[in-house]
Amino acid sequence: MPAAAPELQALAQDSPLVEALRAGDERAFLGLVGSLHPAMMRFARGVDPAEFLPPSHPRWAGHWAKWPEPWPEEQLLTREALAHVRDAIARLPEGQRAVIQLRDVEDWSSEEVCEALGLSDVNQRVLLHRARSRVRREIARHLERRRP
């Protein structure tokens, strides 16, 4: 687990807010969600935020800074590229690795994976999403290095 985000540490000291939340104050709740949103987004994210224009961008915030380079897909099936895919999967945290291995390598269904690993639907998808996003970044880097 990463260390608690500064937003969370601040919250722990913010007892009026905690009291308002206990009292069921919706505005306090929405304010809290707003303040935590950046931290939650960092946690959920599978992609590299640096690939997108920052929130401060006047017109295209959150859009691609530069479109991804299309992959030469036949090159992805070479022995060398496949070895990179295998290594990238092997380097994933355990939960992500188990899910992507069973789903994408062994071609199990999501129901089978949920049952075998004792995961909820949602958790299975979150792990698969993070795993695929990370492996995709590794492949993109590999293909970029090979580009003339």
């Binding site: 479109w67 991804p68 380079e69 992959w71 992805l76 496949l82 999967i89 492996v135 995709r136």
Partner: peptide
């Protein structure tokens, strides 16, 4: 392009 890459990646993973 991104979606296409993910599909290609899943297909490549299946070859492993």
């Amino acid at each position: 392009i991104y979606l296409r890459q993910v599909r290609a990646q899943v297909a490549a993973s299946g070859k492993l």
